[in-house]
Protein backbone atom coordinates (compact mmCIF):
# COMPACT_ATOMS: atom_id res chain seq x y z
CA UNK A 1 0.00 0.00 0.00
CA UNK A 2 1.18 3.49 -0.80
CA UNK A 3 1.08 6.54 1.43
CA UNK A 4 1.62 10.29 1.20
CA UNK A 5 2.53 12.35 4.27
CA UNK A 6 1.90 16.02 5.03
CA UNK A 7 3.47 17.25 8.25
CA UNK A 8 5.35 20.50 8.75
CA UNK A 9 7.56 19.31 11.61
CA UNK A 10 10.53 17.56 10.02
CA UNK A 11 11.40 15.50 13.09
CA UNK A 12 7.92 14.12 13.44
CA UNK A 13 7.64 13.52 9.69
CA UNK A 14 10.69 11.28 9.81
CA UNK A 15 9.14 9.36 12.72
CA UNK A 16 5.82 8.89 10.93
CA UNK A 17 7.58 7.71 7.76
CA UNK A 18 9.48 5.10 9.77
CA UNK A 19 6.32 3.87 11.49
CA UNK A 20 4.42 3.67 8.19
CA UNK A 21 7.28 1.81 6.51
CA UNK A 22 7.35 -0.57 9.42
CA UNK A 23 3.61 -1.08 8.95
CA UNK A 24 4.25 -2.09 5.33
CA UNK A 25 3.45 1.15 3.54
CA UNK A 26 5.46 2.55 0.71
CA UNK A 27 5.82 6.29 1.33
CA UNK A 28 5.78 8.03 -2.07
CA UNK A 29 5.82 11.68 -0.98
CA UNK A 30 6.57 13.78 2.09
CA UNK A 31 5.02 17.25 2.07
CA UNK A 32 5.12 20.16 4.50
CA UNK A 33 1.90 21.98 3.59
CA UNK A 34 -1.60 21.49 2.20
CA UNK A 35 -0.83 22.68 -1.34
CA UNK A 36 2.07 20.25 -1.62
CA UNK A 37 -0.12 17.49 -0.24
CA UNK A 38 -2.86 18.04 -2.84
CA UNK A 39 -0.46 17.97 -5.77
CA UNK A 40 1.30 14.89 -4.35
CA UNK A 41 -2.05 13.07 -4.00
CA UNK A 42 -2.97 14.03 -7.55
CA UNK A 43 0.35 12.74 -8.83
CA UNK A 44 0.69 9.50 -6.84
CA UNK A 45 -2.98 8.57 -6.11
CA UNK A 46 -1.92 6.82 -2.87
CA UNK A 47 -4.07 4.51 -0.77
CA UNK A 48 -3.74 6.79 2.22
CA UNK A 49 -2.77 10.38 3.00
CA UNK A 50 -1.51 10.96 6.52
CA UNK A 51 -2.16 14.64 7.22
CA UNK A 52 -1.32 17.03 10.04
CA UNK A 53 -4.25 19.35 10.86
CA UNK A 54 -2.23 22.45 11.59
CA UNK A 55 0.08 23.40 8.78
CA UNK A 56 1.47 26.53 7.12
CA UNK A 57 0.53 29.18 6.19
CA UNK A 58 -2.33 29.77 8.65
CA UNK A 59 -1.58 27.05 11.22
CA UNK A 60 -5.26 26.40 11.93
CA UNK A 61 -7.26 23.75 10.06
CA UNK A 62 -5.45 23.53 6.71
CA UNK A 63 -5.19 19.76 7.07
CA UNK A 64 -8.93 19.31 7.61
CA UNK A 65 -9.74 21.36 4.52
CA UNK A 66 -7.19 19.47 2.45
CA UNK A 67 -8.65 16.19 3.72
CA UNK A 68 -12.13 17.21 2.56
CA UNK A 69 -10.77 18.09 -0.88
CA UNK A 70 -8.97 14.76 -1.14
CA UNK A 71 -12.05 12.76 -0.11
CA UNK A 72 -14.15 14.62 -2.68
CA UNK A 73 -11.74 14.61 -5.61
CA UNK A 74 -9.91 11.34 -5.12
CA UNK A 75 -12.33 9.03 -3.26
CA UNK A 76 -9.88 6.11 -3.57
CA UNK A 77 -7.44 7.87 -1.28
CA UNK A 78 -8.21 7.48 2.41
CA UNK A 79 -7.25 10.25 4.83
CA UNK A 80 -5.82 9.89 8.31
CA UNK A 81 -5.72 13.20 10.17
CA UNK A 82 -3.20 13.75 12.94
CA UNK A 83 -3.46 16.52 15.46
CA UNK A 84 -1.97 17.68 18.73
CA UNK A 85 -5.50 18.10 20.09
CA UNK A 86 -8.62 16.44 18.92
CA UNK A 87 -11.31 18.95 18.07
CA UNK A 88 -14.85 17.71 17.77
CA UNK A 89 -15.67 20.30 15.07
CA UNK A 90 -12.93 19.09 12.81
CA UNK A 91 -14.11 15.52 13.33
CA UNK A 92 -17.68 16.50 12.39
CA UNK A 93 -16.43 18.33 9.27
CA UNK A 94 -14.41 15.32 8.27
CA UNK A 95 -17.04 12.67 8.98
CA UNK A 96 -20.08 14.58 7.76
CA UNK A 97 -18.91 14.31 4.16
CA UNK A 98 -17.73 10.74 4.16
CA UNK A 99 -17.15 8.22 6.91
CA UNK A 100 -15.35 5.45 5.10
CA UNK A 101 -11.65 5.71 4.63
CA UNK A 102 -11.17 8.43 7.23
CA UNK A 103 -9.29 8.54 10.48
CA UNK A 104 -8.66 11.20 13.11
CA UNK A 105 -6.05 10.50 15.77
CA UNK A 106 -4.04 12.39 18.32
CA UNK A 107 -0.38 12.68 17.40
CA UNK A 108 0.62 11.04 20.62
CA UNK A 109 -1.06 7.81 19.42
CA UNK A 110 1.70 7.41 16.82
CA UNK A 111 4.00 6.55 19.71
CA UNK A 112 1.99 3.37 20.26
CA UNK A 113 3.49 2.11 17.06
CA UNK A 114 1.59 -1.14 16.58
CA UNK A 115 -1.85 0.31 17.32
CA UNK A 116 -1.12 3.22 15.02
CA UNK A 117 -0.03 0.86 12.26
CA UNK A 118 -3.28 -1.07 12.65
CA UNK A 119 -5.34 2.13 12.50
CA UNK A 120 -3.47 3.28 9.39
CA UNK A 121 -4.09 -0.06 7.68
CA UNK A 122 -7.79 0.05 8.64
CA UNK A 123 -8.20 3.53 7.20
CA UNK A 124 -6.23 2.72 4.05
CA UNK A 125 -8.53 -0.25 3.50
CA UNK A 126 -11.57 2.05 3.65
CA UNK A 127 -12.36 1.72 7.35
CA UNK A 128 -12.70 4.33 10.09
CA UNK A 129 -10.30 5.04 12.94
CA UNK A 130 -11.25 7.63 15.50
CA UNK A 131 -9.39 8.64 18.60
CA UNK A 132 -11.21 7.79 21.84
CA UNK A 133 -11.19 11.53 22.52
CA UNK A 134 -13.02 12.23 19.26
CA UNK A 135 -15.58 9.63 20.18
CA UNK A 136 -16.15 11.05 23.67
CA UNK A 137 -16.43 14.56 22.26
CA UNK A 138 -18.96 13.46 19.68
CA UNK A 139 -20.96 11.73 22.39
CA UNK A 140 -21.01 14.88 24.53
CA UNK A 141 -23.75 16.51 22.51
CA UNK A 142 -26.33 13.77 22.54
CA UNK A 143 -29.04 13.53 25.17
CA UNK A 144 -31.50 10.76 24.41
CA UNK A 145 -31.39 8.28 21.58
CA UNK A 146 -31.23 4.56 20.94
CA UNK A 147 -27.63 4.55 22.13
CA UNK A 148 -28.88 5.04 25.69
CA UNK A 149 -30.29 1.51 25.48
CA UNK A 150 -26.80 0.08 25.19
CA UNK A 151 -25.10 -1.36 28.25
CA UNK A 152 -21.75 0.18 29.26
CA UNK A 153 -19.95 -2.89 27.95
CA UNK A 154 -21.74 -2.65 24.59
CA UNK A 155 -20.78 1.01 24.49
CA UNK A 156 -17.13 0.06 25.00
CA UNK A 157 -17.36 -2.43 22.17
CA UNK A 158 -18.96 0.15 19.87
CA UNK A 159 -16.32 2.72 20.77
CA UNK A 160 -13.58 0.27 19.83
CA UNK A 161 -15.42 -0.53 16.60
CA UNK A 162 -15.42 3.18 15.83
CA UNK A 163 -11.70 3.14 16.51
CA UNK A 164 -11.34 0.71 13.62
CA UNK A 165 -10.60 -2.42 15.65
CA UNK A 166 -11.40 -5.91 14.48
CA UNK A 167 -13.36 -8.35 16.65
CA UNK A 168 -10.16 -9.98 17.86
CA UNK A 169 -8.65 -6.58 18.60
CA UNK A 170 -11.71 -5.63 20.66
CA UNK A 171 -11.59 -8.95 22.52
CA UNK A 172 -7.92 -8.40 23.39
CA UNK A 173 -8.56 -4.83 24.54
CA UNK A 174 -11.51 -5.70 26.78
CA UNK A 175 -9.97 -8.98 27.92
CA UNK A 176 -12.98 -11.09 26.87
CA UNK A 177 -13.42 -13.93 24.40
CA UNK A 178 -14.05 -13.24 20.73
CA UNK A 179 -17.45 -14.96 20.90
CA UNK A 180 -18.46 -12.61 23.73
CA UNK A 181 -17.54 -9.69 21.49
CA UNK A 182 -19.62 -11.13 18.65
CA UNK A 183 -22.55 -11.47 21.06
CA UNK A 184 -22.21 -7.84 22.15
CA UNK A 185 -22.04 -6.70 18.54
CA UNK A 186 -25.20 -8.61 17.62
CA UNK A 187 -26.95 -7.08 20.60
CA UNK A 188 -25.81 -3.63 19.45
CA UNK A 189 -27.15 -4.23 15.94
CA UNK A 190 -30.52 -5.26 17.38
CA UNK A 191 -30.77 -2.33 19.77
CA UNK A 192 -29.88 0.14 17.04
CA UNK A 193 -32.50 -1.44 14.70
CA UNK A 194 -29.97 -2.04 11.98
CA UNK A 195 -31.18 -3.95 8.93
CA UNK A 196 -29.94 -7.48 8.41
CA UNK A 197 -27.50 -6.96 5.62
CA UNK A 198 -23.93 -8.14 5.33
CA UNK A 199 -21.93 -7.82 8.53
CA UNK A 200 -19.46 -5.19 7.34
CA UNK A 201 -22.18 -2.85 6.17
CA UNK A 202 -23.99 -3.12 9.50
CA UNK A 203 -20.74 -2.54 11.26
CA UNK A 204 -20.19 0.74 9.47
CA UNK A 205 -23.81 1.78 10.08
CA UNK A 206 -23.48 1.07 13.79
CA UNK A 207 -20.41 3.24 13.99
CA UNK A 208 -22.15 6.02 12.09
CA UNK A 209 -25.16 5.82 14.36
CA UNK A 210 -22.81 5.89 17.28
CA UNK A 211 -21.24 9.07 16.05
CA UNK A 212 -24.61 10.69 15.47
CA UNK A 213 -23.89 11.06 11.79
CA UNK A 214 -26.54 8.73 10.35
CA UNK A 215 -30.24 8.76 11.06
CA UNK A 216 -31.43 5.55 9.47
Amino acid sequence: MRAVIAEDSVLLRIGVVKVLEMAGFEVCAEEADAAGLLSAVEEHRPDIAVVDVRMPPGYTDEGVRAALVIRRQWPDTSVLLLSQYVEERYAVDLLAANTSGVGYLLKQRIADVEEFAESARTVAAGGTALDPQVVSQLLMRRHSDPLDRLTPRERDVLELMAGGRSNSGIAAELVVSESAVAKHINSIFTKLDLPRADADHRRVLAVLRFLGLANT
Partner: peptide
Amino acid sequence: HDGAQQRLVALAVNLGLAKAT
Protein backbone atom coordinates in the same frame (compact mmCIF):
# COMPACT_ATOMS: atom_id res chain seq x y z
CA HIS B 1 3.27 23.75 19.39
CA ASP B 2 5.87 24.10 16.68
CA GLY B 3 8.82 23.33 18.93
CA ALA B 4 8.72 21.33 22.13
CA GLN B 5 5.47 19.50 21.40
CA GLN B 6 6.60 18.15 18.03
CA ARG B 7 9.99 17.18 19.41
CA LEU B 8 8.45 15.31 22.31
CA VAL B 9 6.03 13.46 20.06
CA ALA B 10 8.89 12.56 17.72
CA LEU B 11 10.84 11.30 20.73
CA ALA B 12 7.90 9.17 21.87
CA VAL B 13 7.47 7.83 18.34
CA ASN B 14 11.14 6.88 18.10
CA LEU B 15 11.01 5.14 21.45
CA GLY B 16 7.86 3.34 20.30
CA LEU B 17 9.71 2.26 17.15
CA ALA B 18 12.64 1.06 19.23
CA LYS B 19 10.27 -0.90 21.43
CA ALA B 20 8.52 -2.47 18.44
CA THR B 21 11.55 -3.26 16.26
